[in-house]
């Protein structure tokens, strides 16, 4: 079948790719744009390792056909640091020990950003819910909760 041309903005840069329309956004990011910070953990929208922001909304990029993202504004983990500086959530992850093996970390940070943008001072329950679509097998989540809480507190 025919490939199609799809354009969108990724981390502030306009990008165009010519790919099969049902190619997953995840694969386009990783294979066509070489943005390998977005990970595949399950391929069924369950683990959140592939989470990115699409028009400021958290989505699992393994469930987004690339053509459905045409014209969208996409932010991946590579676009999180600003002006060469780590985002304070990234810094908080380092300090709290929230990243262990690191494979869930990019998606977890995207989920954290979505949570903090919708709810700058989340309760523990809100943090739990906000991260519940991102599975982490290493940490038991406690260090991640702490990282989010630290960011929320520092912005008071």
């Amino acid at each position: 079948m025919a490939e199609c041309s799809v354009s969108f903005t990724v981390n502030g840069r306009i990008q165009s790719v010519t790919v099969p329309p049902m190619k997953r956004l995840l694969d386009v990011l990783r294979e066509d744009l070489n943005l390998t910070g977005t990970k595949e953990g399950c391929g069924e929208g369950e683990c959140g390792a592939c989470a990115v922001l699409l028009n400021d909304e958290l989505v699992n990029s393994c469930l987004v056909p690339v053509r459905d993202a045409s014209g969208a504004r996409i932010c991946t983990i590579e676009g999180v640091p600003a002006a060469g500086q780590l985002h304070r959530l990234q810094q908080a992850f380092i300090e709290a020990g929230a990243a262990q093996c690191g494979i869930c970390t990019p998606g977890m940070i995207m989920a954290g950003l979505q949570l903090l943008s919708r709810c700058p001072h989340p309760t523990l329950e809100e943090i739990r819910e906000g991260l519940s679509g991102n599975l982490c097998r290493c940490t038991g989540y406690m260090r991640i909760f702490e990282a989010i809480q630290n960011v929320a507190q520092s912005s008071e």
Partner: peptide, 12 residues
């Protein structure tokens, strides 16, 4: 709605 999938899946 809040029990369906995750935040990411609720967004889609």
């Amino acid at each position: 709605a809040s029990w369906t999938g995750s935040i990411a899946n609720q967004n889609r």
